[in-house]
C-alpha cells in the first residue's frame, strides 16, 4: 500500500507490483543479473521461481534471452541497475529487442546520482539520451511509488513494443494520491500531468525531481511567482501538446531531471519548444560531470538538483 506523503522507493513499488501482476498473468516472466534483492524482482522470484531467470552478471545475454522469451509469447520484465542494463547492454536492446519490436519491459533501478555512496561508476545520468534515441521504445521515469505501481499495471502488456522504465534506489516522497478518483487517468503513457497551476513559468520534471519542482513552486509562490508544475513521466513518446500549451500559456520553461543536461528531459522538451512555440528555457540537471560518493541529499545539494536551484532558474527567466 502506497501512502501519500510517506517515503518509498520506486524500485520497491515495482517489485510489489510485478509480484501482484505475476499472480494474474502467467505469461509474465522476470530476469535479473544478480541484483534481484536490489531491483526488487526477488519478490516475483520468491512467488514464481519457475518463471524467474537468474542470469548472473551477464547483461548482454540477459537482454537477448528476454528477446527469445518475448518472441515465444512471454512478457519478460528485465531488471538490473540502469548503468548495466541501459549502458552495457544498449546494443542488445537496440538490435535484438527494439529492431524486432518485441514486448520486453526493461525495468531498471538505481539510476541517477541518488544511488549515492556507491559513487560515479554506477551513477548513470546518460540513460534518457541513449534509450530515447532508439526507435520503437517508450521511455518512462515515474516520479514516486504510487506512479510506479500504476505504470507497471498499465504497461505490462501494452504497448506491444519495448518499454524502458527508469527507477531509483532511494526512498522518495509519495506525492500522488493512489486513492484519487482520477488516479488511473493520470498514468496514461505519453500524457503529462499538471500537478500545480501557474501562469508565469512552467517547471517540467520527471522522476524524483518532480517533488523538487513542487517544492520550488511552493517557495516561488511565497514570493508571488506562480508557476505550473508538470510531471513528464513519459519522456518518449513525449507529450508535445502539453509542452506547447505550457510554452504558450506561461512563456517560460524550466526542466528538472536527475540526468545529464545533454540529451535527456531538457533536450527532449527543447526539441518540441523550438519546433512548436519557442520560449526561453533553463535546464536543471547534472551539468555534464561524473558524480561521486555521498548521500543522495548531499549529492543533490552539490550537483544542484535542489528546489533552491530550480527557484533560481525560474527567477532568471522571469527577470529576463
Amino acid at each position: 500500500m502506497v501512502k501519500l506523503g510517506e517515503r518509498e522507493s520506486t524500485r520497491n513499488a515495482y517489485g510489489v507490483a510485478l509480484a501482484e501482476l505475476g499472480e494474474i498473468h502467467p505469461e509474465i516472466v522476470a530476469l535479473d543479473a544478480d541484483l534481484a534483492g536490489s531491483t526488487q524482482t526477488r519478490r516475483f522470484a520468491d512467488k514464481f521461481p519457475e518463471r524467474f531467470f537468474e542470469m548472473g552478471i551477464s547483461e548482454a545475454d540477459m537482454m537477448c534471452t528476454a528477446a527469445g522469451l518475448a518472441v515465444s509469447g512471454k512478457i519478460p520484465f528485465v531488471s538490473t541497475f540502469v548503468i548495466f542494463g541501459a549502458g552495457r547492454a544498449w546494443e542488445q536492446i537496440r538490435n535484438t529487442i527494439c529492431r524486432p519490436n518485441l514486448p520486453v519491459r526493461i525495468c531498471l533501478s538505481h539510476g541517477g546520482i541518488s544511488i549515492g555512496e556507491d559513487g560515479s561508476s554506477a551513477q548513470a545520468c546518460e540513460d534518457f539520451a541513449i534509450m530515447r534515441s532508439i526507435p520503437n521504445i517508450s521511455v518512462i521515469v515515474p516520479c514516486d511509488a504510487a506512479e510506479t505501481k500504476a505504470l507497471i499495471h498499465e504497461i505490462w502488456d501494452k504497448p506491444k513494443s519495448p518499454v524502458y522504465i527508469r527507477m531509483t534506489r532511494n526512498k522518495v516522497p509519495t506525492i500522488l494520491d493512489e486513492n484519487d478518483q482520477s488516479f488511473h487517468q493520470k498514468f496514461t503513457l505519453g500524457k503529462a500531468v499538471t500537478l500545480r497551476e501557474g501562469s508565469q513559468a512552467t517547471i517540467i520534471a520527471c522522476g524524483q525531481m518532480v517533488a523538487v519542482g513542487i517544492q520550488a513552486a511552493e517557495e516561488l509562490a511565497k514570493e508571488g511567482i506562480e508557476v505550473r508544475v508538470v510531471n513528464m513521466s513519459t519522456i518518449k513518446p513525449i507529450d508535445q501538446d502539453a509542452i506547447e500549451k505550457a510554452a504558450r500559456e506561461t512563456g517560460r520553461i524550466v526542466t528538472v531531471e536527475e540526468h545529464n543536461i545533454y540529451g535527456g528531459l531538457g533536450g527532449a522538451v527543447a526539441e518540441v519548444v523550438t519546433e512548436r512555440y519557442p520560449v526561453p528555457m533553463r535546464r536543471v540537471g547534472v551539468r555534464d560531470v561524473f558524480g561521486e560518493s555521498g548521500s543522495p541529499d548531499a549529492l543533490f545539494e552539490k550537483y544542484g538538483l535542489t528546489p533552491k536551484n530550480v527557484v533560481k532558474a525560474v527567477k532568471d527567466l522571469v527577470k529576463s
Binding site: 540477459m62 527469445g68 515465444s72
Partner: peptide, 14 residues
C-alpha cells in the same frame, strides 16, 4: 553474439 542467447530464451519458453 546475440543469437545463442535468443535461442536459450526460446528454449526456456518452450
Amino acid at each position: 553474439g546475440h543469437g545463442l542467447s535468443v535461442g536459450n530464451g526460446m528454449a526456456l519458453a518452450g
